[in-house]
Design a protein around this nucleic acid. Structure first.
Lengths: 337, 337
DNA sequence: TTAATTTGCGCAATCGTTCCCGATATCATT
DNA sequence: AATGATATCGGGAACGATTGCGCAAATTAA
């Protein structure tokens, strides 16, 4: 039905060969000015666009990169995607976005699918469920350029870009402490995720600094990053049902924050009177609440941009890159009270 | 660098021709069982995947559909995308998502880009800026299968799927009226958008039903759907600065709701004491506010699914489709007080 | 034993593009 | 006028996969 014009169409219409038309369109020196003009004008007229599949087949590259995130309906990721697109489009690359919904199975399928679609490179933030990275190692060993951002593995040697999660967690927890809270819980994602580990480290560092003992009962992991409401609900319930209730929670992510707020509202626990909150979030709705919640904001757009630049550098490098960068970008604490 | 195995690799390794290998993998009857077994096992071993570009070139289709939305960081669209992906993946199609950020220029570029990437079909919701649909007509006339959802044009004849915007707006406005509000303003997106027109119609219908005069000063359009904060701010300011201040606002969209809440908070206008709100939204954060906001929820996931099914029907139809459907799905009002 | 059929596989064209070679025409040089 | 240089263009292979056709060998039928 939809049959775009080809080089051959132009060639036939103009009585030329496809080679000549191709060269004319690519503005090669060996084609006369008037032939070029003829070809240009006709191509313009019929709105000729080179067939990208033919090009990909010939050039052995697709000029498109794959992106794997847990959810686009997450402000951190949607902002990162905007950063990714801004660089990619400028450099003539297409962006294919896939979502894992925090599922390891989906991640494997998506990565496999992207690889078979012959993308030129991969930009990925691990799902909450992912602890085995064999599917990525496999691709990486075969030479697929990839850059990790946000949630990174430690057993794959390539460019990585993360926020300074430890610093952010330290500042947010410190802020709670300075604000007078002493019994600070920590609600976070699955325990093997890099961001969870780093944020937990910042959290404990803050407690240590102020000589507050770390209470293991105060640390709650949600293996699916709050993807399932029951998960968050159970964790929050366990916290508020403790004999020695926490008076504040440091929450490690956006979805968890929303989930936590929902549960607290259902339980009729007042924020921040009964329990104060602070956490990682790139959402702009948090400061709309009556009692706004202090949040650590990650430079998502910047991270997307940087990750893409790193990836394109890998893709377009003439020789194999062996010197990899591990970029850490500072977060920013927005205090509200 | 990343060079996936080809049929030729298998053929050479096994001393066969590429035709035989191809036929073996496709399980054709004319290949002997033992050759098939040989080929299958070797293909499995080296993890052979057919080159999608070569296939697309040959089959003249890419098994991928393009999606154009204004923003993925919008709960309606992200849910719709989940619906789209669920159907598309089941049917073996890839989904390429692009964002317009409510810009007409971006929409043209994205559509053009998608078309040149030779997608098999297009799923699109118009940007707030779009009033001229020539770029889409052009593709449509050339036979590109396309389905519009949410924000649809009236001058392109193809499948369309929308929420029952008029009904939703009527119910939300009626709910405000029944709750005792009489001076109800309407904050909406650009005036040429189908959703704006339909929601305005529902709004005025409700006012009419309760014999409340329609005050033109109460109707504020944001040409970019609240993409720019200044736009929303100006509109809200104009409303609260009216001599005859409205006591409620019916807001036509998610982003506008957030923007409006931000402005009201900045102005220290209490919701709902000084001004009540109701509006279209698929976000789950609205009910986290102290005074929750009644909202009309669109069946986003369902709409995404249906739109995709319609598109795939167009794509896979043997003969040109001339009988187009205009599906309208009911919304649901969530009242909270 | 011979002819007819079936089985199993390879050749080559095709999709749209690019690019290495040639091929021809035009022109200047001796 | 013959040679060479340059300008301009076409032929054809290649990228990876599919598929109609052909052809040999194996099997069956006569």
């Amino acid at each position: 039905m939809f049959e775009p014009p080809t080089l051959k169409d132009i060639a036939n219409a103009l009585g030329l060969s496809t080679s000549t038309v191709s060269r004319a369109l690519r503005d090669t020196y060996e084609i006369s000015a008037k032939t070029k003009k003829l070809v240009f004008e006709y191509a313009e007229k019929i709105n000729y666009q080179p067939n990208p599949n033919a090009l990909s087949l010939k050039e052995r590259r697709t000029k498109s990169i794959g992106v794997v995130v847990s959810e686009v309906a997450n402000h951190y990721f949607s902002q990162a995607i905007n950063g990714i697109e801004s660089i990619a489009y400028d450099r003539g690359y297409h962006v294919i976005i896939t979502q894992t919904h925090e599922s390891y199975a989906r991640e494997k399928i998506n990565v496999q699918h992207l690889a078979s679609r012959s993308i030129d490179g991969l930009l990925i933030s691990l799902s909450a469920e992912t602890s085995d990275t064999a599917h990525l190692k496999y691709l990486h060993e075969r030479g697929m350029p990839m850059v990790f951002f946000d949630r990174v593995p430690n057993d794959i040697h390539t460019h990585k870009i993360t926020a300074n999660n430890e610093q952010g967690a330290f500042e947010a927890t410190s802020h709670l402490i300075i604000s007078g809270y002493k019994k600070i819980a920590h609600l976070t994602s699955s325990d093997h995720l890099s961001i969870s580990i780093e944020r937990l480290r910042g959290y404990t560092a803050a407690l240590n600094k102020y000589n507050i003992p770390v209470n293991p009962d105060y640390i709650k992991h949600c293996p699916h990053g709050g993807m399932f409401p029951e998960e968050t609900e159970r964790a929050v319930l366990e916290l508020v049902n403790l004999k020695d209730k926490p008076d504040a929670i440091f929450i490690a992510g956006d979805r968890l924050s929303i989930g936590c707020l929902e549960v607290l509202k259902k339980l009729n626990v007042k924020v921040p009177d009964q329990i104060a909150l602070a956490g990682f979030s790139n959402s702009d709705v948090l400061n709309l609440f009556e009692y706004p919640i202090s949040s650590v904001r990650q430079p998502a757009f910047k991270m997307g941009e940087t990750a893409t630049e790193m990836l394109l550098q890998l893709i377009e490098s003439k020789y194999p890159v062996t010197d990899f960068e591990n970029k850490v970008i500072d977060t920013e604490l927005f205090t509200r009270n």
